[in-house]
């Protein structure tokens, strides 16, 4: 059964007509055409679909759309503004923290939440924040350095 849901996505109000049990990931990708959040496993095991709900990282692959009504959702597309990459995204480029890049959307979202809460995280805190994310290419150390660089204001 489809219903209407309103929520805020990347700072803009969004209204969708969807099955309330549809995963948020499919609504973001198919209804709102925000295709940066990625399907990886559908079972909260890889982190490729990670978004922020009211600023907290959440798996969008299993999240009922009905449960985000009235809340703020942030996807990787919401990290940049007016087409300009955020300092965190720029730090990933500066460290060349990517190979295939498929896991990056989710990692960037989790890292942005970490930095919002803790502007100077230790390596251990970064690892803890990113441990829900799988990367198969082996970019882990570059990603950690990128988060450290962003925390230091891009100066590391």
């Amino acid at each position: 059964m489809t219903e209407r849901f309103s929520f805020v996505v990347n700072g803009y109000p969004a209204e969708v007509t969807a099955d309330g049990t549809a995963p948020l990931l499919s609504v973001l990708r198919d209804e709102l055409n925000l295709r940066g959040s990625r399907y990886g496993c559908g079972t909260e095991q890889c982190g490729a679909c990670m978004v922020l709900i009211d600023g907290v990282p959440a798996y969008s692959c299993t999240r009922d759309t009905a449960s985000v009504a009235g809340r703020r959702v942030t996807t990787v597309e919401g990290l940049s503004s007016n087409g300009a990459l955020s300092p965190l995204q720029q730090a990933f480029l500066d460290e060349q923290a990517g190979q295939c890049g498929y896991c990056l959307s989710g990692i960037l979202v989790s890292a942005s939440a970490l930095l919002a809460k803790n502007p100077n995280p230790s390596r251990a805190e970064i690892v803890t924040a990113l441990d829900p994310h799988l990367c198969r290419c082996g970019m882990h150390n570059r990603v950690i350095r990128a988060v450290q660089r962003a925390a230091a204001g891009g100066s590391t």
Partner: peptide, 18 residues
Amino acid sequence: RLDLPAKVAGAAFIHDIA
């Protein structure tokens, strides 16, 4: 890498062709 700017912005994959 020439392909990374699109990837950190959440674009660039076959999965996104719609």
